[in-house]
Amino acid sequence: MSAILIVEQVLNGLQFGVMLFLMAAGLTLIFGVMGLINLAHGSLYMVGAFVAATVAGLTGSFLLALAAAMAAAAMAGAVIEMTVIRRLYHTDHLDQVLATFALILIFSEGTRAIFGSFPLYLDAPALLSGPVTLPLGIEYPRYRLALIAAGLLVALGLWLLIAKTRIGIQIRAGKNDREMIAALGVDIRTLYTFVFALGAALAGLAGALVGAIQSVQVGMGEPVLILAFVVIVIGGIGSIKGAFVGALIVGLTDTLGGIFLPEFFKLFMEPASATQIGASLSSMAIYLLMAAVLIWRPTGLYGVRA
């Protein structure tokens, strides 16, 4: 195993991790602030990807496509918050799961009706296509490098928003004591809609960014949603910092497990069966990790609630 392989896989893991963070950040905010389990978060990711592919196809501009994806996902998020989600804040989690699962079905069939069953393909901008040579002679796709940078920038922006702005104070206060901030005159309904739309916009952005390396298709959001739930459970529900750390851990575990576990088993097994056992264990690795974290810290790495 060469150093180049390890460096490239670490970059792949980081890229995967920051994209997971964009999904997990919205999910954890919505759960932390409103106490709502939103299974339809993956659908907002899909909405972002489809809108981006359509706008890029019509205008040829990738930046415009990203902006449209965020706007459309935020709008879809705001609309479902005001029509459906708002009624669920005081119900128990099972009702929330049922209602948001229904939203998944509605979004999937609606997207299929509008865009058809064929996957769409979104091209990365020409400026970012092809490989770039990093130090040590490592070639890496320029677009994936840009994804890492974009993900880190969004993480920084989100941290500034939560930590330094007035709306951030309201969000944090809403997480801790929603009655009290309502009593202080903050319009809690608008705040909830804003938080939901913000989470949706991040999911839409992730969908659009990832759409350019993968295919844009109905149902693309659900596998990512499952991983995003793993991320927020590891990081601690409600914690943006936890989501960030959790996403990077999950991303790195997933990509590095795929190369290190087979090598590890080769130390004391035949290569063929070592590859097989290593590969099947690496697909379980993040769930084993989640179980281990939960045993060690039942509320997640940065969780506060009991």
């Binding site: 195993m1 060469s2 180049i4 392989l5 490239e8 896989q9 792949n12 890229q15 995967f16 070639e139 796709p141 994936r144 390396i213 990509t255 795929g258 190369i259």
Partner: peptide, 10 residues
């Protein structure tokens, strides 16, 4: 397929 492509490269 990023992880697979990295392994092919190496």
């Amino acid at each position: 397929y990023a992880a697979e492509i990295a392994q092919i490269r190496a």
